[in-house]
Design a protein around this nucleic acid. Structure first.
Lengths: 128, 128
DNA sequence: CTTGACCCTCTAGTAGGATGAGGGTTCATA
DNA sequence: TATGAACCCTCATCCTACTAGAGGGTCAAG
């Protein structure tokens, strides 16, 4: 299949598929006579794996490591577990940060649409 | 005061202070005979405002808009309210995303440190 | 033979800085 | 007077993970 179809099937953009190839995350596919990339099932699997990992918030470096592991089924699962655990910890930290942020901004009280900036709670909160 | 001191007082890095100047968020300060930047109280206030806004997650473009408003106290508060409301909505969206993510990853079950990649729940979940 | 959909490479841009090279300044101390 | 440490300067390059655009080639249908 050509790049447009694999993009549609994986949910990636065409440019992103090419980008992943340039980054070495997928091997360069064969080319047609007209120099078009021709993908097969294994590319589809690999790109889907990447897409899914990215959707779950793993960084490209983490994806790289996960792919390396997935490529070698004899390898121990420990490293994959560690990557997942680190990622969960990151998510929890971000959740805590955002929750605190939301609380702080919400604490400013409702809107104050009627007044001028001079009495604006938003500007005031940022100034001190 | 020189850039090192204002950086320490605002909690910004020296490079970031210079970056904000290059971006037009703060006006260029006076220079000493030796070409050092010399800041005064107004710079300190402005940079603190920026730092606080950034810490609360506003983008530099949002900060720019907030600064413009803060500079003109006669202006209506409505725009500042809108910026804050948009930001809260963004935070809520991110919170929802991260919560869903966390649930999905947690759903993989605990770790599987003992096995090989072939039976690894992490790799398996990413493959399908 | 042309039109439109698709594909190619290469370059540059995005946010918000971080890092480093290669220098100049200031001030206290030897 | 020299010198060393701490501070400052500009300019260029790098980071993540793409995205957009220029300028062109390919292919099938009508």
């Amino acid at each position: 299949m050509k790049i447009g179809e694999i993009a549609k099937r994986t949910g990636l953009k065409i440019e992103t598929v090419r980008f992943y190839e340039a980054e070495g995350l997928v091997s360069p596919p064969l080319r047609s006579g007209g120099n078009y990339r021709l993908y097969d099932r294994s590319h589809l699997d690999r790109l889907s794996f990447i897409k899914r990992s990215r959707d779950l918030g793993f960084s490209l470096d983490q994806v790289r490591a996960l792919l390396r592991l997935a490529d070698d089924p004899q390898e121990s699962c420990a490293e994959a577990d560690t990557i997942a655990a680190v990622h969960i910890a990151e998510i929890d930290r971000k959740l805590a940060d955002l929750t605190a942020l939301r609380a702080e901004i919400a604490h400013w009280g409702g809107t104050c649409t009627v007044g001028t900036v001079a009495e604006c709670r938003v500007i005031d909160a940022l100034s001190h």
